[in-house]
Design a protein around this nucleic acid. Structure first.
Lengths: 340, 340
DNA sequence: GACTGGCACTCGCTACAGTCGAGTGCCAGA
DNA sequence: TCTGGCACTCGACTGTAGCGAGTGCCAGTC
């Protein structure tokens, strides 16, 4: 595995040129465009080694070289420094995010901003309910046997559900229910609520117990069990940049994958604190995305992570720039959330 | 304009065959596949007339004929009877829509169903706020100077907004505000609220007036002025069916158009009662969709229209089938909403 | 031992010519 | 008014040839 400094420099040059031009890069062009200080022939020898090691490959015998997924991986891990954002980009981010009126607005603006800056498909997860704390529960009587439950989370998310009650309730009953539920649940994480919710039912006065049981089962079922995650998407038109060369001619699998919320959650919803995750081509577990790369990270107020965001694009991607942008956007969104 | 019955039959046959095979259809193939009772030569003469009139055209000199937008228009208006849904489709619709837990769920299920049945891109507008009535306004104190306003509409839509108050309010004040606002606004259409909201401020007791003013300006601004419409989209992967033949080689303009909520609202949000609107190719006002057709209709409980839904696809589309499906889905969704 | 210049070789791309065939337009005749 | 026949058009496909970017290898040089 004798990858000396020059071979690494060659690999870096190949990645950079290929990302820029979208064309296989040959030895001659390489020495012309980069100060490698050696002749094309030498570069060719290095290329042969790099190809043996699986970092680059030739589309056809008489073409230049193209990085493999493994080559990109090496590039990302060891050969690229994170590009600082341009002042223009910083300004764009700040301008874009001020003036958001509610969480929906924040998420929509964020996903569009991310798509625009990276010129890729952007994905933003709404703050996860599992990671949110209950700020308030509101019960709104719709009729005597129907209740709308509105849960407001500290992340700004608001979820509502219609509850069909087992029997009619008076306005006072509803007030009691509301008070009880809020006393017990406010401030607790939703993922921790199951025991609390159970206690809630047990401690209710007998005539409220059936209603409380229904209410709590709805809460558990909809907010915890089928953990209600939401996703915003933007920039799918960016998939058509670079013609059909990326994604080997068909957008279909990519578009299909992007329609599955479950898939997207898997991609960007498993963020860990202060890590930017880069998945390159084959490393991806989702078959439909084997021709794509994903750059994602978590965001949240302060150092807490409440959700993930990221971009999906061709493996032929400007990794340093994309990583920098994704991080910066996540940081700004976090600050914005912290202000609430 | 001598379009006798046979010529119309020829046009119909051309449209049907072209939609089915996606290949230009020639005179010989036509008489073989349809009982026209005449020879290819005769059909050719008819074709020449149809071409003169602008209903069909030849991609190249020695190719078969393809319908023009105008040809499709004539076909839709006069040559096609609406296809009744298959029992399987009916069942699919019913199965799909039962068990929806809230409005979000209804809309999501609907848009996926529509995409799946028509094999096209489906678009569903959330029930329009402008067409909804206020069912309840809830004010939730977040801090002494911050209020979350939750508006529940009779269509099931729930919108919330954070309000920064001009000064601190006690719990009793909030209760008063809530009562006042609900007394005045419940049951009224949002589009009719501006005068009501003004009266609300005037009638408030002096010490509540500043808070009420802030509250009502937020209500007006966010719910009425920038009329907060939402859209759900599904089935973009269907655009890749039929290779790149549809949409003249590039999905880009289509994908771009589909990202603009404003554009989509224009497409499907202007529904009129019990009409199915069909826009074919050039008839479309949005440049990016000149290569596409749109089939849309309104939906709502009973005969009221609260929103629109529809599909976007290639001009080469099974219009009778698509129209039937769009109508049927709209009707079922309307029934579902009526049950609330 | 590392690098370099030179050279033969590979192979995709483009241009060009030739053939085939689907489909047409037109015309004379029924 | 319809039909069969016929000449014509032109795209699709095939095969051939030349070009050129790029390579691998080798002998020679520092």
């Amino acid at each position: 595995m004798g990858l000396d400094d020059r071979k690494l420099a060659v690999l870096r040059a190949i990645v950079e040129d290929y990302v820029a031009t979208q064309e296989p890069v040959g030895s001659k062009a390489l020495v012309e465009r980069h100060q490698l200080g050696v002749s094309p022939a030498t570069v060719r020898n290095d290329m042969a080694v790099l190809e043996d090691e699986g970092y680059i490959r030739q589309p056809h015998t008489s073409a230049g070289r193209v990085p493999t997924d493994r080559g990109y991986r090496l590039f990302v891990d060891r050969l690229s420094r994170v590009k600082p954002l341009s002042p223009a980009e910083r300004r764009a981010i700040e301008r874009f995010l001020v003036g958001a009126v509610d969480l929906d607005d924040v998420v929509h603006r964020t996903v569009r901003l991310l798509a625009q800056l990276t010129r890729q498909v952007a994905v933003v997860q709404y703050p996860s309910l599992a990671r949110s704390k209950v700020r308030h529960l509101e019960l709104v009587p719709i009729s005597t046997t129907r209740l709308m439950v509105v849960m407001i989370a500290d992340t700004g998310r608001v979820e509502q559900r219609l509850v069909e009650l087992p029997g009619p309730l008076s306005a006072d009953d509803v007030t009691d229910l509301r008070r009880l539920a809020n006393e017990k649940l406010v401030g607790s994480r939703l993922s921790d609520t199951p025991p609390l919710v159970q206690a809630l039912v047990d401690e209710s006065s007998p005539h409220l117990r059936p209603a409380m049981a229904t209410l709590s089962s709805v809460l558990l079922e909809t907010l915890v069990e089928r953990h209600e995650e939401r996703i915003a998407l933007a920039g799918t038109a960016n998939l058509t940049r670079g013609g059909l060369l990326d994604f080997q001619g068909s957008l279909r699998p990519i578009l299909e994958a992007l329609e599955e919320e479950v898939v997207l959650l898997k991609l960007i919803g498993e963020a860990e604190p202060s890590t930017t995750r880069v998945l390159i081509g084959d490393e991806n577990e989702i078959d439909n995305l084997r021709a794509a790369s994903v750059v994602s990270t978590g965001y949240g107020p302060g150092s807490v992570i409440v959700g993930g965001l990221g971009v999906v694009g061709p493996t032929r991607m400007d990794y340093p720039g994309t990583i920098a942008t994704v991080r910066a956007v996540a940081r700004y969104v976090g600050e914005l959330l912290a202000q609430n």
